[in-house]
Design a protein around this nucleic acid. Structure first.
Lengths: 187, 187
DNA sequence: CCTTCCTATGAAACTATTGACATAGCGCCG
DNA sequence: CGGCGCTATGTCAATAGTTTCATAGGAAGG
């Protein structure tokens, strides 16, 4: 069986938690997994077809009356095994791409007020995202006092959530710092 | 003049600080700017040609004796102006792609010890990167007690460095937290 | 009735990125 | 002298990802 792309593993990760249609997966790509690996339906449908061709997933057509029929995909044993192996296989530290940081590198060229406004705007957006994550965390903690078991999908989702919160907090703090420098500096 | 890709702006950002050959740019793509926007020479050479075709950069051939001749590129007025405008233009918050977080989402499937080892390894790498950044920061602070002026390229580079440190610190902390959960949990 | 939105799947064109291939002269080490 | 690595510039194929187009039926609202 041929190699699976990272996107492929992202799809398997979702299917490991239950059957989903391509459309469902596209929606799940908004939260929480989509915050760290986004894909649109035009990428998802062909990828599902490839995974099926290679034996990692199967599907059955579910007829619906008030809406179009759908194909519901589920993991095969091979798919689950491939996913399990992938989780702990060696991985290079990824190279990051962040256009805002790239812009900061040319900060000395632009208008200072406009730059400050841009960074304040991004600070605001990262804080809004952080608050969204915190609401999810509050919801999880409201259900049980302790963390979910390490072997559970719930813990795994909680771990990604923690990363999301740390990431947004860091982004917001940096944006704030840059904006303060731009606003408070000498004229 | 046609639109410039983000990579194009990355090249302009470097050329705004001084003339460079394509080969020089490829080397600069290792640090510090490359930590937030990497590109290899196979992408850089065609992009430089496109920027020149569109009038944002120009080049002159510099003959060398003990090594191959090179093309040294520099910004045109149009290039500098395009870069200046770009810095403060509206920007969407980028969608993040991080395979390690994606793997965390399927953590419950894999072997716990192997997973812990993977996260400890990444913790180590992020801390090593952090130390590298801190060494650069120490070097900057050693040159002068105060921060460089906000209008200087040095401050801009320092701002990206700050982001780099925050990013690595956050990654390392999260990896450590995940590893601790995996190591300390019930058998 | 008309428009808009949602569900649902897919193809096609375009852009971005990576990795391998290609060339070529110089210096260094064994 | 032979191979390796560095400087230096490029092309090409493959993969990955985004955007747009296409289709189609039901629901909801004006």
């Amino acid at each position: 069986m041929s190699t699976i792309s990272t996107l492929g593993y992202a799809l398997l990760s979702l299917l490991a938690r239950g059957e989903l249609s391509g459309y469902d997966i596209a929606r799940q790509m908004k939260a929480p997994i989509g915050y760290f690996w986004h894909a649109s339906h035009s990428q998802i449908y062909p990828e599902l077809a490839r995974l099926e061709r290679d034996g990692y997933v199967g599907h059955q057509v579910v007829e619906q009356h008030d809406r179009p029929d759908k194909k519901v995909y589920s993991l095969t044993d091979a798919g689950r095994e491939a996913l399990r192996t992938w989780v702990t296989s060696p991985l290079d530290v990824p190279s990051v791409r962040d256009e805002l940081v790239l812009r900061a590198f040319s900060l000395w060229l632009g208008d200072r007020r406009e730059a400050a406004a841009l960074f304040r705007e991004h600070e605001r957006r990262h804080e809004a995202q952080l608050e969204e994550y915190q609401a999810i965390e509050a919801h999880i903690k409201g259900q049980s006092a302790r963390l979910p078991s390490i072997d559970s999908p719930e813990f795994a989702a909680y771990a990604t959530l923690q990363r999301g919160m740390g990431y947004e907090r860091e982004c917001a703090a940096w944006c704030r710092w840059v904006a303060e420098q731009l606003e408070g500096g000498p004229v």
